[in-house]
């Protein structure tokens, strides 16, 4: 696969949030304001690219049996680094993201890419794959964030729309998050000619499901 394709597939064709339906927790939790969605997306992208590079470099050193814990530790290290940087340079964003910044560690997109891509490909491809997936994730969060901020707070990146628009509180609440995400997926569904309807949601979609199943079989054999 060409490097360009490796990069672009994460943005549209295999968008981690809108098509693969991964990383739903941060997608719903931090998108009350567009700027929070953008910040979360960029922080995740950084962790994704760095962990993909390191894991790809170490893929021959890490024993197969303990690869998942090893990946998680590498990811957690970068997450700690990102939270330090945000705490000192962007304290507002740091407090807005709250516990979800630490929870980037268990974002299944990152572990999924480590397991499915970085542990099998070279460094350049892994970095580009991470970057593409990160941009796709950021794009999805930004879309949902803009919609929820416009309807829920009546503003666009913090700039008020004026008095003529009465904000609808529902969209700023958690219920609104599920609703907007559902509608956005429905739109993607139409654009992609109902590809998503045929998909089954849940563990089958999770990139770690394969790892789990494989582990089960390995243990029993």
């Amino acid at each position: 696969m060409s490097y360009l394709k490796t990069f672009t597939k994460g943005i549209i064709k295999e968008n981690p949030v809108l098509v693969m339906l991964l990383g739903t927790c941060p997608t719903l939790a931090v998108t009350t304001l567009a700027v929070n969605g953008l910040g979360m997306g960029l922080a995740t992208t950084f962790v994704l690219v760095c962990s993909n590079i390191v894991i790809s470099l170490l893929k021959n050193v890490i024993p197969k049996e303990v690869r998942l814990p090893s990946f998680i530790v590498i990811i957690a290290g970068f997450v700690t680094f990102v939270s330090f940087m945000l705490q000192s340079y962007l304290p507002d964003l740091y407090s807005a993201l709250g516990v979800f910044l630490s929870l980037i560690t268990v974002n299944c997109i990152i572990l999924g890419r480590a397991e499915m891509f970085a542990s099998k490909n070279n460094v350049v491809a892994s970095a580009l794959d991470g970057l593409g997936m990160g941009v796709g994730f950021t794009f999805a969060l930004l879309c949902i964030g803009i919609i929820r901020e416009l309807l829920g707070s009546g503003s666009f990146f913090g700039i008020s729309l004026g008095d003529w628009f009465e904000p609808i509180g529902f969209f700023a609440q958690s219920a609104g998050g599920f609703f907007v995400f559902g509608v956005v997926i429905a739109v993607v569904n139409v654009i992609s000619h109902y590809k998503i309807s045929k998909k089954k949601i849940g563990c089958a979609n999770c990139p770690n499901a394969a790892a789990c199943g494989a582990k089960e079989e390995g243990a029993e054999a």
Binding site: A175, F181, G182, I185, N189, Y194
Partner: peptide, 22 residues
């Protein structure tokens, strides 16, 4: 509606359940 079948409908149902917890 065809566009909402499957995952979108599930998410909107989750939205209504979440609303009830408010």
């Amino acid at each position: 509606p065809k566009a909402f079948k499957g995952i979108p409908a599930t998410l909107i149902a989750a939205s209504i359940v979440s609303l009830s917890f408010v």
